[in-house]
């Protein structure tokens, strides 16, 4: 897989326009950070990519083929997703990491390998998920996604519930994973500094519209759109301009 292409994509919930006229391309092998005010449509945008929802307008192509023409279960395995509050399944860390491979009939998952991928040693394997800290839980949820051997990872504010130290760990980890496994990362964040630190490209969504996107350095040092400038300077909220 090389490229995800959005063509005039829109998403409506009944009569509510959640996303509108999104056209852009995501090239594989990079980290894309998505920023935008609360309720802008960021989570909705990434759910379109692993087809938790389908666009109501336009289409999304992966390597020039409509994502609707891929087997949806296989597509979701190729495109992992990590949420802000990880939901870990009852039981042990091992149960969680084995889940994805298990439902496709594979029983010999190398749990230690995936633990090492997220910087945890094998003593974690038998730990009960209830005993994990927030940062550890997030790392397990990343390891659980990795066990499906994805090529894309969608991260929906993976660090917003974590303290600065754990946030740092996750940032370093994701960058390392991207390099090691040649992953494509699409990372929603509310933290502008984080978007700058980890992003190769940055996407700004406001009020359901794609306002601007481009190389992260240029995006922050020389934004082209007035709204982007306002947002970067903390002067744009869901309610409007301050």
């Amino acid at each position: 897989m090389k490229k995800i292409k959005f063509i005039d994509v829109g998403f409506k919930d009944h009569d509510d326009v959640i996303l509108k006229d999104i056209s852009m391309e995501i090239s594989f092998g990079y980290i894309y950070t998505i920023i935008g005010p609360s309720g802008a449509g960021k989570s909705t945008f990434i759910k379109l990519i692993n087809r938790l929802i389908d666009p109501t307008e336009g289409k999304i192509l992966i390597d020039e083929k409509n994502i609707k023409d891929y087997d949806i279960i296989k597509l979701r395995r190729r495109i992992g997703m990590v949420f802000q509050q990880p939901y870990l399944f009852e039981g042990t860390v091992e149960d969680n990491i084995k889940y994805g491979p298990m439902i496709r009939g594979q029983r010999d998952t190398n749990v230690d390998y995936y633990l090492s991928m997220v910087g945890l040693d094998k003593s974690y394997r038998t730990r009960k998920v209830d005993d994990l800290s927030g940062g550890e839980a997030q790392r397990i949820s990343i390891a659980r996604s990795l066990a499906n051997e994805p090529t894309v990872l969608l991260l929906d504010e993976p660090t917003s519930a974590l303290d600065p130290a754990s946030t740092q760990v996750i940032e370093d980890l994701v960058i390392e994973l991207k390099n090691k496994l040649n992953l494509t990362i699409i990372w929603i964040t509310h933290n502008m500094e984080q978007a700058k630190r980890v992003g190769d490209f940055t996407i700004f969504i406001n009020n359901g519209r794609l306002i601007e996107y481009g190389n992260t350095k240029a995006f922050f040092s020389n934004p082209k759109n007035d709204l982007t400038r306002l947002f970067i300077n903390g002067k744009l909220t869901k309610e409007g301009i301050e």
């Binding site: 692993n50 979701r76 997703m81 949420f83 939901y87 996604s145 499906n148």
Partner: peptide, 12 residues
């Protein structure tokens, strides 16, 4: 959220 977690992992 829980159901979407399962689906995102490739569960039917």
């Amino acid at each position: 959220h829980e159901i979407e977690t399962y689906l995102a992992l490739g569960a039917n």
